[in-house]
Structures are given as structure tokens and as C-alpha cells.
Design a protein around this nucleic acid. Sequence first.
DNA 1: TGCGGCTGTGAAGATCCGGTGATCAGCACT
DNA 2: AGTGCTGATCACCGGATCTTCACAGCCGCA
Lengths: 281, 281
Amino acid sequence: MSEMTTETATGGCMRVAIGDGDSGFVQVLCKRLDRLGWEHRVLTGTVPVERLVAMRLGALVLDLALLGPGAWEYLERVTRELPALPVVVCTGQSTVSQRVRGLRMGADDWLTKPCHPEELIARIEAVTRRRRQAEGPGTEVVLAGEIEVRPDQFQVFAHGASIDLTRREFELIQLLAAAEGRVLEREEIYQRVWGYTMAHGDRSVDVFVRKLRSKLQVASPDWNYIHTHFGVGYRFAAQQAGAEREALRAPIAEAAPEPGPAPGAVQAPPPEPARDVRLLA
Amino acid sequence: MSEMTTETATGGCMRVAIGDGDSGFVQVLCKRLDRLGWEHRVLTGTVPVERLVAMRLGALVLDLALLGPGAWEYLERVTRELPALPVVVCTGQSTVSQRVRGLRMGADDWLTKPCHPEELIARIEAVTRRRRQAEGPGTEVVLAGEIEVRPDQFQVFAHGASIDLTRREFELIQLLAAAEGRVLEREEIYQRVWGYTMAHGDRSVDVFVRKLRSKLQVASPDWNYIHTHFGVGYRFAAQQAGAEREALRAPIAEAAPEPGPAPGAVQAPPPEPARDVRLLA
DNA sequence: TGCGGCTGTGAAGATCCGGTGATCAGCACT
DNA sequence: AGTGCTGATCACCGGATCTTCACAGCCGCA
């Protein structure tokens, strides 16, 4: 049951950079990483720290031998400038004092070659686990229109201010926002938010959609976020109230961040609550 | 230099428990730990998890050989119930698959004996460093409203006067303040303050929140600091009592009464700037 | 155009959750 | 042993939340 989940909390999959000169080892390792679905990049030398930043790595594997004489210096620079980046040194024969030095310098683990790729992976997981632990099961943050859904904090922000939602309301908007642009059926929504199958005639989803709409209306009056699909369910998509248009039958309605017109534009008293276009052929 | 403070967020200096049967190795190790000023305890067998909790450890060193047949089970139990506790397995000969199993199970590092005490210490430091960092900067002073949380002194000040808090109370406010603006779930709070997983129905967090609120109320009557998120947890944010700031958190304001823009009205919520930006996630 | 079904809306009741005060055990110190 | 403090647990209560219902309005279709 130690079968571990390869999915990481950081949204997609784990991203690892490997700085190692042993091409045979790297090849085997990469094959294994592929099977796990981890993204990986092989570094051929000392990559500038800024480049490492750009890679948005989840972990870094380094063979000090590859780096040549400036290896220690480089290791120190990396650990100093990217303290959040887990670093596993995987290198050939070494003395105790070298290992101690490396670990004190900021490396998270030190593995001596020859080593088994599986152990290296397990050690990467171990150091990464510690870091993930604090970040929680944060799925992706969703930005749409004027609001921001933060699954990691149980909060939704509008203009940077928190919108007070109950747990159910939050779970509902999180589900909808995660499926941005797609229509979700009531049954599926109920199933995934409430956890069990919806009884026939249950209107809970409708009621909560109404509550959500109400709160979103207060926080972000010029936008509509939740659209009804008659006879089907609901769809989440940011849409500015004034703009009557929405890409008709676009399968993936992309959240248009700035639909042209000036933001503070004329917002007449909305007895005309911008009825969304119903497709559903 | 890597001269680190032995201070941990949980109190005095680093506290380590060693479960190892090799008395010679333990003796050498302890002598070294003494010189470092680390507190240490030697365990002679499988200590119940509750006892480990009571020790308020900073790290645990385990020799699986000492634990006998139930070693794996014990390791799993420890890592499951005390996920915040860094565990370094230091044991005799082992196969790759054993090491992988241990690491996957939750151990943070695996060292094969014979090993040098200095390396073991360096590895303990490494995993502890990673954990401290993941838990956030526990040493940073937090200023909010009229109070000041000083993790370095275990004190909270209001108007410069110290507020008398107990250990738990302080750890709680420190945790909340460090996550200023974010909602923390009860489970997570309990996990990180009490150190083990929260039993179902436990109200300890609530009770301590109440104590904290009570003391903060006395020291800083015009402010609210700890906000309840129903069904979720708590959020720390300084908020002046009189001012009806955070206009967006009105409970279900019905249909917007004044669609007229009311420009100057709800704008720029100053007490909610704490949106952390996580790069290099 | 009219009808049946689906959805929006408001409210009432049931249910759940968190605030509050009190009690009790463990511990350090006197 | 006595005292004072800390922390754990409990029961109760008020209020927030969730469910359910009835009705009104809207949509699709014949």
C-alpha cells in the first residue's frame, strides 16, 4: 500500500532538473521519470540561477562532478538564492566531511553513486513532501473576471478583498471554477460537492447557485460568473454584464480578461440583468 | 556560514530522540549532541506515539533493527500520526527496496550504518531546515493593528506592553499571525500547534481561540484579530471594531439597493493587503 | 399561443457548528 | 499537603448554515 500517488499538489506533475554527467544513469532515470509522468530536464553544466528560477522546478538533482571546480560555490549559490528549491546531490565517492559540508550548505539530501534510480526518486519525494506539506492540497488558483478562487485558503477574492463564503458555497464555486467554460450537470455537481448521489427532485444545487450569485453580485456587480444551461446544469465563465456577446458555441469559452470596453463604463441601473445567451442546440 | 540557530519554533533548542540499539554509537552521538547543546533522549524500544508527542521533539532517529518485527508498522504509525516530525532512519545494511519503502512511508532520510555521527547530525539538520522553512518564517515579527507578535521572545505586545500568554496560546497566535489573511483549517492548526492529528470532535482549537480573543480584547479593545470562517477554521487579520471595513463580507446583502456607482464608497480595502505571491511554487 | 416542465426566489424549519462558562486532572512551586 | 497555573473536556445555548417547500417566472415545444 506504499503505492504512492504520482500526482503532486502543485497542480500538474513534478518538474525535476537533473545535472549529471553519467549519461547512462541519466537515461535510465529519465525513462523511469517518464513512466511516473514527471517532467524532467537534463542540465549539461552550471546553469545560471535565473534560468533555474524560470524552470519553476520542483526539485533539482546535482552531480557535483559535473560542475567541475566551482561546484561547491555553485551549490551554495543555488541554496542561498533558492532556499525553497529542494536539492538532492547525487554524486560519486565522497568523504563524510564532503557530505556534511554539502548538507550544511543547504542540500537536502546526498546520495552516493552508484545508486538505484528508484532510491533517488524516493529521496526526491521525501524532501519534496516536507515542502508540500505546508502548502496543502492547493489546486490551481483560478482567476476569472474580477474574482480569484484560492482553493488553498478556502477563500475567494474580489478586488483583493475576501468574499465570505460558507464551506458548501466555496466547494461549489471551486468545482465550477475548476471546470471553467464547461457545463456541469446537477447530478455531477451534487455528487462531487455533497459526496453522494442526488435524490430526485433535490434543489440544493439551485439554491446554492443562487446564494453564490447573490454574493458574487455584491462583490463584483458588473460581471456574471455562473450561467444556467436549461435542462442541463451550470457553467462557470466570467462575463462582463454590458457585453451582450459571448463567443457562440465556442466549446472552450476562454475567460476574456479584458473585453475591450472601458471598465468603468456606463453601467445603467441594471433592471436589465444581462441575460446570457443560451445555446444548447 | 551555515552556523544555524538551534532554536526551533516550538521552544528551546533542538530536541532529538534516538531509538538505536548500538550503545557505542549512541554514546558517541550523544557526546557530540551535548557539545552542540541539543537535548536528546535515548529510546529503548517502541515508545507509544503519545509519549513521543509529549516529548515535543524536533526530530526522531530510528534504527529499525531496534524495533523488531513491528518496525515498519511503527514507522508508518509515527509518520502518519506525526507528519510534522522529521524522522531519520539510521539502520544497518538494507536493500534499495527497503530504503525506498521507508522513504515512501514518510521517513525523511535513511542512513546506513556504519555511519559517522557528524553526517547523521548534518542530515538531521537538513531535514529540520526543510521543515522549518516549509512551516514558514517562524521568526518573523508580525505587526497587526495594535499588537506585535514576537516569535523570538515568545511574547505578544500591545501598545508596547506585554500580553501574558501561555505557551499554547502563543503558538496558536504565532501560527495564525504568520498566515495573516489566510484561512487555516482546524485540522491544520491542531496539527501544527499540538503536533499530532486532531481527534474527531476535538474542540481544543476553539477553546484556545476563545482564550486568545479574550486576552486580546483586554489588551486591544477596539480591534478584532481572529475571524471565524464557519465550517472551515480561523483567519488572522487586524480589523478595527468600529469601522465597518471589509464591506464585502456583509451577510447576503440582498439585491444591490443602489446600483448607482457610489464610487468613493466601497473602495480600496487597506486591511487586506496580505496576498502572498508564491513564485517558484 | 398555450402548456408542461424547469429554474429563480423567498422563507420556514431542521440541523449543525462555534462561543461560553465551568469543571477536572496534571504539574511546578511553595 | 496546599496553591496557582495550564491545558483538556464537557454541556449548554444562540446563531449560522443547510434543507426543504411553495410559488412565481422562464424556457422549450407543440
